[in-house]
C-alpha cells in the first residue's frame, strides 16, 4: 500500500512541478482572497486584526476547494481513472497518495498565506508550537475529506458546482477548530488551544479512516 501511495503522490507532485497550476493559479487566488477581506473589513478599525485567524482559514478552505478540483481533474482527463482502476494499485494506497500530494500542496499554500497575514494583517505569530501542529492536523483533515468528495464528484458534469456544496459543510468543523486553535496560538499558547488541536486530529483520523475503507467503492462508482 505504501509503495502505491508513494507512486500516486509522486505522480501528482510531478504533475504539479511541471504544470505549476497550484503555484501559479491557486496560490495567487488565496492571496487575492486575503486582499478582498481587507477591502471588505475596514483595516483601520482593528476588525481585520481580530478576525485574522478566521479569515486565514476561510482563505485556506476556498483555495482547498480549487486544489481538490485540480487534483481530480487530472484523473478524469484521458481516462486516467480507468487506468488507475486497471493498474492493480491498492485503492487505499491511491487514496493515501492523493491525500499526501494534496496535503503537501496545501501546506505550501498555508505557509504562503501565513506570510500573507503577517504582512497584510499585521498578525503576531507568538505560539509557533501550537500553530504548526494545528496546520498539519487541519491540512490532513481537509485533504482527506477533499479527496473523498473529490473522487466522488470527479466524473460528473456538474463537478465544479457540486464539490463546494458537498465539501464545505463537511470541513466546517475544521474551520471552527482551526480558527479557535489559531486564535489561541496567535495570542500565545494557552491550554484552550490544545483541545481544539485534539478535535482536528480526531477529524483527520476519522476521514483518513473513512477514505481507507470506502475509496475502492468511490473509485468504482465515480
Amino acid at each position: 500500500m505504501w509503495r502505491d501511495a508513494a507512486l500516486v503522490a509522486g505522480k501528482d507532485l510531478r504533475l504539479e512541478l511541471r504544470s505549476r497550476v497550484a503555484i501559479n493559479q491557486v496560490a495567487p487566488f488565496a492571496l487575492l482572497v486575503l486582499v478582498l477581506f481587507a477591502f471588505a473589513l475596514d483595516p483601520d478599525r482593528g476588525i481585520l486584526a481580530r478576525a485574522t485567524a478566521g479569515l486565514y482559514w476561510v482563505a485556506v478552505l476556498f483555495s482547498a476547494v480549487l486544489a481538490v478540483q485540480r487534483a481530480f481533474a487530472v484523473e478524469v482527463a484521458d481516462g486516467v481513472r480507468d487506468g488507475l482502476r486497471l493498474s492493480g494499485l491498492d485503492p487505499a494506497g491511491i487514496f493515501v497518495g492523493k491525500v499526501a500530494a494534496l496535503a503537501a500542496q496545501l501546506l505550501v499554500l498555508e505557509a504562503l498565506l501565513g506570510l500573507g497575514v503577517v504582512v497584510f494583517y499585521d498578525a503576531d505569530v507568538a505560539g509557533m508550537l501550537l500553530l504548526v501542529p494545528t496546520c498539519l492536523a487541519a491540512t490532513l483533515g481537509v485533504a482527506a475529506a477533499g479527496s473523498l468528495y473529490g473522487i466522488l464528484s470527479a466524473g460528473l458534469r456538474v463537478k465544479e458546482t457540486i464539490l463546494p456544496l458537498l465539501l464545505l459543510p463537511v470541513v466546517a468543523p475544521v474551520l471552527v477548530a482551526a480558527t479557535q486553535a489559531f486564535e489561541a496560538g496567535l495570542s500565545g499558547p494557552t491550554s484552550d488551544g490544545w483541545r481544539w488541536l485534539g478535535l482536528l486530529i480526531v477529524f483527520a483520523a476519522a476521514y483518513v479512516g473513512l477514505g481507507l475503507t470506502t475509496f475502492d467503492l468511490l473509485l468504482e462508482e465515480s
Partner: peptide
C-alpha cells in the same frame, strides 16, 4: 444510487463531528 449511498453514509460521521465541534464552540 451508488454515489448517493456513499454521500448518505458520510452524513453520519460528519454530523457527529459537527456536533462536538459546535458544542465546544
Amino acid at each position: 444510487a451508488g454515489l448517493a449511498a456513499v454521500v448518505g453514509l458520510l452524513l453520519l460521521p460528519t454530523t457527529i463531528v459537527c456536533h462536538y465541534a459546535t458544542t465546544w464552540w
